[in-house]
Design a protein around this nucleic acid. Structure first.
Lengths: 144, 144
DNA sequence: TTTAAAATGAAAATCACTTTCAATAAGGAT
DNA sequence: ATCCTTATTGAAAGTGATTTTCATTTTAAA
């Protein structure tokens, strides 16, 4: 099943001078439809159910390209640091389930006050911030 | 130069049943006096200037122990995910210089409001949060 | 179709980290 | 100070993830 968004990504790749291949279709589709951040090996294993000839190297190369294009973003978790998630529009923060890995985004509070305060106290020029919340999602709460 | 704090850490190690060794002295001293988060290899290279016989394995083992004791904490950066920094008392957030890596901590705003709001909207049970700011420190601002 | 360039997978190489193990060193007991 | 138990050590081998190389295949534009 190739969704509309999937086509959008593939077209974006094409517009960037890339070719549309079966490998890329499968990987894009996985990332687009996952509600969790996925690691390279995880993607490799899942994708091969759909397309067994896929090579791990291609997974790495595709992730690199998709990240460079801003379609996916790398997520840092307490355990793995190389998980990938489809990017959100605008600046969204992440809420991750520590049980199943599900990711939900939420739009941030206004950090300008905090940012100003810290900037004044430290003399830093503040450029960016990361905010991640960790917790247990509704489904996992039931089973725990 | 062995600082007072350095002795404090070494005594804490000893109280935990560890022995005070040259390797540990050198590594503790580095971590205690660094204003940046250091990675294992970085520590290995720096420490060998002081004590060339040091092995990389010992660095890993010492970091593991210091982290388990809560004397140092692991920090995730956009590039490296295995950097270590001396722990702060209480819950402090991090402000990192994107040029030189210097780390400054600041005590957080109260996140309970945000936490409650997100919890209500998502149904998640929220356990923890990470907040990191990135910017340019006063020294690096001069040269840029 | 043809064709040039991009993309591929297999294999080898590299890198960070862990495990194993025999030798060494710390520090309490003497 | 010296002995002795045990923690600690570094070298080397092992592991697992990621990257590089390269000959082959595939894409898509001509």
């Amino acid at each position: 099943m190739i969704s509309a968004l999937s086509n959008q990504w593939l077209q974006a790749l094409q517009a960037d001078g890339c070719r549309i291949t079966r490998s890329r279709k499968v990987i894009v589709d996985l990332l687009l439809n996952s509600d969790r951040a996925l690691g390279p090996i995880e993607i490799y294993d899942l994708a091969r159910k759909e397309y067994p000839a896929l090579g791990l190297v291609t997974v790495y190369r595709t992730l690199e390209k998709l990240e460079a294009m801003g379609l996916i973003q790398r997520v840092h978790l307490p355990d793995g640091c190389h998980r990938y998630l489809r990017s959100t529009q605008g600046h969204e923060h992440l809420l991750l389930c520590t049980q199943c890995g599900k990711v939900v985004t939420f739009s941030g509070d206004d950090f300008s006050k905090l940012s100003d305060r810290v900037s004044q106290n430290t003399g830093f020029l503040i450029q960016e911030h990361w905010l991640q919340l960790f917790g247990v999602c509704p489904d996992c709460r039931k089973h725990l």
